[in-house]
Amino acid sequence: MGRQIDALTFLPMDSDREMTWEQSLHANYTDGMQILHKGEVVYERYFGCLEEDGKHAIMSMTKSITGLLAEILVVEGALDDTRLVRDIIPEIGDSAFATATVRQVMDMTTGVRYSEDYSDPNADIWLYSRAASPLPKPEGYDGPDGYWEYLQQVEAEGNHGGAFHYKTINSDMLGWIISRVSGKSVTELASERLWRRMGAEQDAYQTVDGKGVPFAGGGVTAGLRDLGRLGLLMLNEGEINGERLFPAEVVRRIRGGGDPSKFAGFPTIPNGSYTSQWWVFHNDHVAFAARGVHGQTIYVDPTAEMVLVRLSSFPRAQNGFIDPTSLPAYQAVAKFLMNRE
């Protein structure tokens, strides 16, 4: 099976030259790749420094774990996604987040000022990183201390609910909301509701700021196989190993996607949307994914009953550079698996 998949060919986006599956793995600096079909592992490979007992930073796929926890709380009735942030977190004060709804935070349709241009040394992402650093603050530092202090001083930019804007601070705002309504940190809740119960074979880790608040927008490090289990949990609508971990409605709402009319600026996902911190492709296979910079992904294809997990170290942060030789490759594998049934 592995050799057959390696030999599969596909046409990258905007190209007239075919590429093999194996060539795409190297082109995209793949560190680990696992494919599950109908619950069975049909492909698993490791490259570079990653081995089967190793762990890898999953970057913004962390957001999808945070979003999944929030959607579970919404469906179970513990979190009202129509409430304003300030009604749940009064400490948010006059921050632009105060007047956003929980759903707008979950779907990243808030109107908040935050630049995530990694190539700009003056971008907000680096100010945020300085606030979040667990190391002692340098002498003379007078900025916010920790994720939540940063969120309290965020300024407005545009209107809430107008359009999708990918900004990590939404994920940490959501993490704060989850912590307040559940009485637990996102790490505790993920451990109790997901990791332990899905039969994970390795611990996962999550970075924290200087006050011990987990980085809900990108701090998780985990093993390839356990991310496959998470993908399988999403494919099977909340069930794994014969046990239901959360209502099927949670995945159905995520898979249904957000409002495509609010989603723009991602040419490799032309018909896509974003909801509950998950990317939804609205393609023929109803695929949806968790995604992180430098090539991290959990790609769920319900039509092909396939879960694909890639861990990667692509040198540029934007996944738009990787998608042209990845998304068509995933679709080629899906078709191959369906045709062999």
Rank of each mutant, 00 (worst) to 15 (best):
N241H: 14
N241M: 09
N241W: 01
N241Y: 06
G242M: 11
G242L: 13
G242F: 13
E243R: 14
E243K: 15
F246D: 09
P247Q: 14
P247G: 08
A248E: 15
V250L: 08
V251D: 00
V251N: 08
V251A: 07
V251I: 15
I254K: 07
I254E: 08
G256I: 11
G256M: 07
G256D: 11
G256W: 09
G257E: 13
G257C: 12
G258D: 15
G258K: 11
D259S: 10
P260L: 08
P260T: 10
P260S: 10
S261I: 06
K262Q: 15
K262F: 12
K262T: 14
F263Y: 14
G265H: 15
G265W: 15
G265R: 14
F266K: 08
P267C: 08
P267H: 13
T268G: 02
I269C: 05
I269W: 13
P270S: 15
P270G: 14
P270A: 15
P270M: 13
P270Y: 15
N271C: 10
N271E: 11
G272Q: 10
G272T: 10
G272E: 03
S273L: 08
S273F: 09
S273I: 10
Y274N: 09
Y274R: 11
T275R: 09
T275D: 10
S276F: 03
S276D: 12
Q277M: 15
W278L: 04
W278D: 07
W279Y: 07
W279C: 03
V280F: 01
H282R: 14
H282W: 07
N283P: 05
N283D: 14
N283H: 04
D284N: 03
D284C: 01
H285L: 00
H285V: 00
H285A: 02
V286A: 08
A287E: 11
A287M: 12
F288I: 05
F288H: 06
F288Q: 02
F288Y: 14
A289S: 14
A290H: 05
A290P: 01
R291H: 07
R291L: 14
G292W: 06
G292C: 10
G292H: 01
V293N: 00
V293E: 00
H294P: 00
H294Y: 10
H294W: 10
Q296G: 00
Q296H: 07
Q296I: 06
Q296N: 06
Q296E: 07
T297S: 03
I298S: 00
I298C: 04
I298M: 09
Y299T: 04
Y299G: 05
Y299F: 15
Y299S: 08
Y299R: 04
V300F: 02
D301L: 05
P302A: 05
P302D: 04
A304T: 07
E305W: 01
E305V: 01
E305S: 11
E305Y: 02
M306I: 01
V307N: 04
V307F: 04
L308G: 01
L308Q: 05
L308I: 05
R310A: 01
L311Q: 13
S313L: 11
S313T: 14
S313C: 09
S313Y: 02
F314T: 01
F314M: 06
P315N: 04
R316V: 09
R316N: 06
A317C: 03
A317W: 03
Q318E: 10
N319I: 02
N319W: 00
G320Y: 12
G320F: 12
F321Y: 13
F321L: 15
